[in-house]
Design a binder for these strands. Sequence first.
DNA 1: GTGGTCTAGACCACG
DNA 2: GTGGTCTAGACCACA
Lengths: 135, 135, 135, 135
Amino acid sequence: MIIEIETLSKAPIYEQLREQVLLGIASKKIARGEALPSVRRLAADLGINLHTVNKAYAILCEEGYIVMDRRKGALVAQTVGGGEEFKGKLAYQLRLSAAEAVCRNISENEFKRICVDCYRNAQSESEIGEMSCQK
Amino acid sequence: MIIEIETLSKAPIYEQLREQVLLGIASKKIARGEALPSVRRLAADLGINLHTVNKAYAILCEEGYIVMDRRKGALVAQTVGGGEEFKGKLAYQLRLSAAEAVCRNISENEFKRICVDCYRNAQSESEIGEMSCQK
Amino acid sequence: MIIEIETLSKAPIYEQLREQVLLGIASKKIARGEALPSVRRLAADLGINLHTVNKAYAILCEEGYIVMDRRKGALVAQTVGGGEEFKGKLAYQLRLSAAEAVCRNISENEFKRICVDCYRNAQSESEIGEMSCQK
Amino acid sequence: MIIEIETLSKAPIYEQLREQVLLGIASKKIARGEALPSVRRLAADLGINLHTVNKAYAILCEEGYIVMDRRKGALVAQTVGGGEEFKGKLAYQLRLSAAEAVCRNISENEFKRICVDCYRNAQSESEIGEMSCQK
DNA sequence: GTGGTCTAGACCACG
DNA sequence: GTGGTCTAGACCACA
């Protein structure tokens, strides 16, 4: 699994890192129960600070996607609980994306198609291409 | 149309403002060509800084959702161009949402259902309920 | 309200800080809705690092005791939700304290008396005396 | 008596171990004068490091709950002295728990009830249920 | 002015 | 070796 940080992006590094790990977990490039790179190791590999990686891991941990094991470091969680809170957040994000789509005259069917494509894409292990995503 | 700002939210106020306007446009609570409240007026009504409203309008303008008319103030754009750049951003957002859904074991069908629900919800004029959306 | 940090203590500074704020809120030395000192201000006053104060505030925020307002800084929360999770943690702490009391032959009545004393003490505004608390 | 170690917990293993033993002594699952498992044995059973068990035993010994006998290993102490120092620590812990309870609007009576419940629970031999105790 | 982010470098606790 | 804590100092976003 390759993690790429875009230092030019407006999005904070720890956020990008969180997203990359999330995409990695979803696409099963990192299996459930498997260990993520250690904080120091990843920081060194990416050429960023230890604390930045730490923060990304802490957020993922808080969200339930990973667990910090005292002995083995950071592990991908076997199961992710707390579905209700998540669904609220998910619905909010999607509603916003949908609102933009509506404003741009994207039909319900096309929106649905894009969503399904993204879902399958997130599941598969295809690499992420260049995205013009400032934020 | 009622705009609510949550100063406790992690999301910056100008971002919340942008989102609220976007939801308003999508749900046709503000019609195409219609004028948004003036910067001063909205700032006063919401009890926020004038520059904050300005920033939100500037972003919406830059994204093409509204146009700034020197005489009439901010108007909802009749048509929104620049579809390609937008689709890239949309796909990125959706892929991330989808990745989270995959991690949480939400099936493709359920994800699709939620997406469609959100699309219809964004189109309709129903108010947005309480969403636990820190970010 | 006076906050004292014991740099000799084994307990981390951010933990001590969290406790002091908690005691201040309980004893109403800081009222609900009132603002706490800014991160920088408190760090300067206590002669500790900004990030340390930040962490203490972040934990209190996460626990629901305070809220971070984008404009007014850190405020004491009006209401603290999430009772169930808290009660589990509280019961665990108390069970441990009780176990130690049992081992030391402290009777149920004496334990109850101590607990009630502590409750009233936490409510009142009396200052905390010197406690031989390494951990 | 069954000891369970949670390597995912934020609490260090030696601390968890100390707590489990304490709960075992209080509930009389281990009688006064009885021998605890040997350091090597317990370390092997729990799959943890020998030094970790050693540290837990050393702390319990220092606190007076157990005594180390060169021949018989670790024995539960017949009597536990040093009450005053302990009471200071106990009062500090309880005051903190009480402060949290006050902040959460738990009444004195309810707090008292919980304390008594915990005391009796610590005395009885009932197993500890699942506690969401990160700290 | 506020908090948020990031860096660099240090020491310690844990296992 | 791991992560946790703390420091000092920097820049930026926000309002």
